[in-house]
């Protein structure tokens, strides 16, 4: 199986990148190809980078409270470029009910503080394996 390509991104003005960097390093150590955008990215910059880099997954880290605006925006922009197959996941300081609301809009799982990095790794690997299986099944028919 080819390596999973993940774009780890920091949307908005929030400067807290400890989590993003720890996650980026953990995903790399788990064998994924990781691109980290750096700070202060607009949703447009993130969507463009994800498409250009042919990412399978976008991991958004937001600790600023702006998640209800920024996460759906990234999703819209990625879909507008015809890439609705990209998983949008992430984490930060996001209240449970907001996580539920975002998931109901088609965003992947969002992880809160204290989550072991192994949980994210497993989640992304499982998602990727099932997408691959689905694609194989499709191309078989």
């Amino acid at each position: 199986m080819r390596p999973i390509r993940v774009l780890v991104a920091k949307p908005g003005l929030d400067g807290h990148d400890r989590g993003a960097k720890v996650v980026a390093a953990a995903l790399r150590d788990a064998g994924m190809e990781v691109i980290y955008t750096g700070l202060h990215q607009t949703p447009e910059m993130i969507a463009t980078a994800a498409v250009q880099e042919d990412a399978d997954v976008i991991g958004l880290s937001i600790l600023s409270g702006a998640h209800m605006t920024l996460i759906p925006r990234v999703r819209q922009l990625v879909e507008a470029q015809g890439r609705d197959d990209i998983l949008i996941t992430g984490g930060g300081i996001i209240p449970r009910e907001d996580m539920d609301a975002l998931q109901a809009q088609g965003i992947g799982r969002l992880f809160g503080p204290g989550t072991p990095t192994t949980e994210l790794v497993d989640y992304i690997k499982d998602w990727f394996a099932s997408r691959e299986a689905r694609d194989t099944a499709k191309s078989g028919t």
């Binding site: 003005l13 929030d14 600023s64 209800m68």
Partner: peptide
């Protein structure tokens, strides 16, 4: 809030979604 910390006014496009949040 983050826009103020970064020197943006509340009505700047980069401030959207972040005004008064943090």
């Amino acid at each position: 809030d983050f826009p103020t910390l970064m020197g943006y006014d509340s009505d700047h496009p980069r401030s959207e979604g972040e005004v008064g949040k943090c």
